[in-house]
Amino acid sequence: MGKVVLVTGVARQLGGRFVRRVQREPGVERVIGVDAVPPEHDLGDARFVLTDIRQPTIGKLLAETRADTVVHMDLNAAALGPRGRRVPTASAKETNVIGTMQLLGACQKAPSVKRLVVRSSTSVYGAAPRDPAVFTEATQPKSLPGGGFAKDVAEAEGYVRGFARRRPDVAVRVLRLATVLGPYADSPLADYFALPVLPTVIGYDPRLQFVHEDDAVEALRIAACGPARGATASGTYNIAGDGVLTLSQAARRLGRPTLPLPLPALRWAGAALRSVGVADLSAEQVRLLTHGRVVATREARERLGFTPAYTTAEAFADYARGRGPGPVGPAVLARAVDELAGLLAVDGGHDFRGSGAPSRAQDRIP
Rank of each mutant, 00 (worst) to 15 (best):
D363H: 11
G146W: 10
P168E: 02
R83E: 14
T69N: 03
P168M: 06
V211H: 01
V7N: 10
R130W: 08
E314N: 03
R229E: 01
L220D: 05
V134W: 07
L247D: 00
P141L: 01
R221C: 12
P257H: 10
T297K: 02
A240M: 02
Q362N: 12
C225W: 06
P88Y: 12
D351S: 09
R353I: 08
I53D: 02
D347L: 15
P111G: 02
P196G: 14
L104W: 04
V332S: 15
F193C: 10
A233F: 08
L343D: 08
R207L: 04
G230T: 05
T8V: 03
E213V: 02
A331L: 12
F18I: 11
R173L: 15
A110E: 09
D152L: 05
P168H: 08
V97I: 10
A272K: 14
D363R: 15
Q140P: 01
R54D: 09
G33Y: 14
L177R: 06
L175T: 01
R167S: 05
M101V: 11
R323P: 00
A361E: 15
R47V: 14
E339M: 15
P26Y: 07
S355W: 14
R267L: 11
P325N: 04
P264K: 12
R130C: 01
G356V: 05
A296H: 04
L245C: 05
V19S: 09
A178R: 08
G27D: 00
I32G: 00
A133K: 13
A127R: 00
G324H: 02
T311V: 07
P262V: 09
V5R: 10
E29V: 09
G15Q: 06
L14K: 08
G99K: 08
T57Y: 11
R161F: 14
T246G: 01
T100V: 04
A272L: 11
A320T: 12
A228D: 04
V244P: 00
G15C: 07
A36W: 14
L175I: 02
P168F: 06
G44F: 10
P262H: 13
S359M: 01
T136I: 11
T139M: 04
A156K: 05
L343G: 13
I58D: 04
A138E: 14
P141S: 02
T8K: 08
R83T: 12
R256W: 11
T65W: 03
V160T: 02
A272D: 02
Y319N: 00
L281C: 07
